[in-house]
């Protein structure tokens, strides 16, 4: 009898310890899973969601020479999620010979724009497609003022950005000739992490000028965009690394996001496993205590 009681006691202690597991063990397990699948890559088939396909089709439908305002509203903090989206979209736009006008509402956005241009223009040059700064693409840099800045950009690009990131006068750049406001823009894209970001662009630019708009955002922000996608304010959007992986599949160039998908899948499964195991342990613990007549 005593032995049986001891056994129950051990089980209960184990379950109790698991239910209130020190979070550092969870951190260690998550880190181990990530590192393991970084070392041992596994590929997975990616299913494309409706809003990602809609975004791809919107960009695909642009004619050569279409003007696209690409607002890069994120910094290094969210590079892991948004960089793959940024690269895939920029490359698609430049391959389609669109004129890409980049700017940022975030102080740390312009370096991200430069970094992406260096990567994508370099890739295209290697493939024999030369793209010229100031003719095919431009980095207008950062503009302070959040919502007010968006309305200012919409009413005049050249007044809002008198010089580009390199210090050249905007009005002298070939890409800026013959147009100045959002009415002359064929597509507005924002790759954004927060405020100011996609919602602010919808409120201040898309709805005001009625221009087609798509967005790439972090996974946390994406649930907020479903109402705007349903109301057609957004023609499509990408959410987090998963959205980027789906986009990479559509553009036919699996990259960083696709490679990251199995890691993300594994971590999601791990969290689900931990949550379910935690619940099972909790129920077992409750049942043991109830049997002993303890009030829960």
């Amino acid at each position: 009898m005593t032995e049986r009681n001891d056994k129950v006691g051990i089980w209960e202690r184990w379950l109790s310890a698991f239910v209130s597991l020190d979070r550092r063990w969870i951190f260690l397990i998550v880190a181990s899973v990530v590192v393991f699948f970084l070392i041992v890559p596994v590929s997975m088939p990616v299913t494309v969601s409706e809003q990602v396909r809609a975004m791809y089709e919107t960009i695909e439908a642009l004619p050569a020479g279409a003007r696209v305002h690409l607002s890069i509203d994120y910094g290094p903090g969210s590079e892991a999620e948004l960089w793959p989206q940024h690269i895939a979209i920029l490359r698609q736009l430049l391959e389609k010979d669109c004129k890409v006008i980049c700017s940022s509402l975030w102080t740390d956005g312009p370096p991200m724009i430069e970094k992406a241009f260096t990567v994508v223009v370099g890739q295209l040059e290697k493939e024999g497609k030369k793209k010229v700064r100031g003719v095919d693409y431009v980095n207008l840099g950062f503009k302070a003022g959040d919502r007010v800045a968006i309305t200012k950009i919409g009413s005049s690009f050249k007044e809002t950005f008198p010089t580009d990131y390199q210090g050249n006068p905007t009005s002298a750049l070939p890409i800026m000739q013959g147009w100045d406001t959002y009415r002359d823009i064929d597509l507005l894209i924002t790759i954004a992490v927060g405020d100011p970001g996609a919602v602010e662009y919808i409120q201040q630019a898309q709805s005001r000028y009625n221009i087609p708009m798509v967005a790439g955002v972090t996974a946390v922000i994406s649930p907020q965009l479903y109402p705007y996608y349903q109301s057609r304010n957004l023609r499509g959007f990408l959410g987090g690394l998963a959205g980027a992986a789906e986009y990479e599949k559509l553009v036919g160039r699996p990259g960083y996001a696709t490679r990251g998908m199995f890691i993300q899948s594994a971590v999601h499964l791990l969290i689900v496993g931990l949550v379910l195991a935690g619940n099972v342990a909790q129920f077992a613990l409750w049942s043991m205590r109830r049997k002993r007549g303890e009030r829960l």
Binding site: I26, P76, G77, I271, L274, G278
Partner: peptide, 21 residues
């Protein structure tokens, strides 16, 4: 900056384990 943001991945796991009961 990236390091502080990356903490989220770990904190999401620990918060989910604790909260989803």
């Amino acid at each position: 900056s990236a390091t502080i943001f990356a903490l989220l991945a770990f904190y999401v796991a620990s918060a989910a384990f604790r909260a989803f009961r």
